[in-house]
Amino acid sequence: MDDIFHFDTLLAGPPDQLLKAQEQERQRIAADLHDALGPLLTLIRLELGRASELVREDDLSDLAVVIGRAHGHVAQAFDELRRTVVNLRPAMLDDLGILPTLGWLVREFERCGSGLRIRTDFAVTEQAVPSHLKITIFRICQEALNNIVRHAQASHAALSLTLTDESLCLAIDDDGCGMPDNSHRGRGPAGGTSSIPQRATSSGGRCDITSGPGLGTRIHVCWPLAGIRP
């Protein structure tokens, strides 16, 4: 059991780690928008410029083809923008709630080709989850599952959200390679850089991460009902 460590975010690093993680997320979004939308917008501009030339030259034979290509690039741009918006805050979180959104997130990760199978257990009603915690819960699950797929070499994972008389608790477990040693304090499953502990504490919760080489990883976050704050 010496190889297993427990990460208690009440003893974690300074809160500016969360600000750093948020800034890194903003930079990632900016890079995604630049890399994905920039080339598409350039192609659209070129195609529309070509269409204008054809109109000026009264050469309409290729106009439909050029406009069709521009339309295809616009559709791709919308898809990329939709993907970015979903990553920021899925519309279904507001429309349907946290439980259907987590179900959708699990299905997306199962379909990504990693072979990971994820079991869910939601022993809580939608109304019992405070609205201001829903995006935090989604972000923690999103990051944890992403780390599992990228780093943990796991075949199975489990995600549960439960309510007791005292706490709202979220748990994510995997049967992957685990974290090698205590040098990974402050990191996510299998060494993936993680803002999960800071997300937990900044929303009034407590996070414990238990892991060890070959033993998988367990992330357990609890928000005391008396201490949950908007």
Rank of each mutant, 00 (worst) to 15 (best):
Q142N: 01
G212F: 01
S114M: 07
H71L: 12
T164G: 06
W104V: 12
I137G: 00
P197Q: 04
L105E: 07
T42K: 12
G115K: 08
A12Q: 09
L11P: 00
T125G: 08
L163T: 05
S114H: 09
L145N: 09
V129N: 04
R26N: 15
G205P: 06
R199W: 15
I140Q: 03
R218W: 06
E166C: 01
I219C: 03
A12D: 12
I44A: 13
M1R: 10
D165C: 15
F109I: 07
L170Q: 02
P189W: 15
T101H: 02
P213L: 10
Q127F: 08
R56E: 13
G97L: 01
T193M: 14
R119L: 11
V85N: 11
V221A: 05
A158V: 07
E143I: 07
A36V: 10
S131C: 08
H71D: 12
A31G: 04
L159V: 11
P39R: 02
E108Q: 10
D165T: 14
A30N: 01
Q127L: 09
E126W: 04
P14Y: 06
T164Y: 05
R50H: 12
H34S: 12
D62L: 14
L168C: 11
H73K: 03
R56M: 13
G113A: 00
N182P: 01
D165Q: 15
H132W: 06
F5D: 02
D62H: 12
R229W: 05
L40A: 06
D174G: 04
G97D: 01
L225G: 12
I4H: 08
G72D: 05
A144F: 07
D16N: 09
H73V: 01
V55T: 11
D3R: 15
D62G: 10
G227F: 13
Q198I: 05
A21I: 00
R218P: 04
R139A: 13
D174Q: 03
S155R: 14
L19T: 07
I98P: 05
A31D: 07
W104D: 15
G113M: 02
T101C: 03
A144L: 09
G176V: 03
G103P: 13
A51E: 11
V106I: 01
N87I: 12
F138N: 12
N182A: 07
P189V: 15
I44V: 15
G188S: 01
F78K: 09
G38L: 03
V106E: 00
Q127P: 03
L159K: 09
T84F: 15
D2E: 06
D58N: 10
A75C: 13
P130F: 12
A30L: 04
G191R: 02
L40G: 04
G178L: 02
L116Y: 00
A64T: 06
E23Y: 14
C169P: 05
G115T: 08
L40Y: 05
D173Y: 08
G205Q: 06
L48C: 08
P90G: 11
D165A: 15
N182L: 07
C169A: 11
T210N: 07
W223R: 01
L96V: 08
T162F: 00
L11S: 00
P39N: 03
R82F: 09
E25W: 13
Q76N: 08
P230E: 09
L60R: 11
P180R: 14
D58A: 10
D208H: 09
R206G: 04
E80Y: 14
L93D: 08
R117D: 11
S195W: 00
V221W: 04
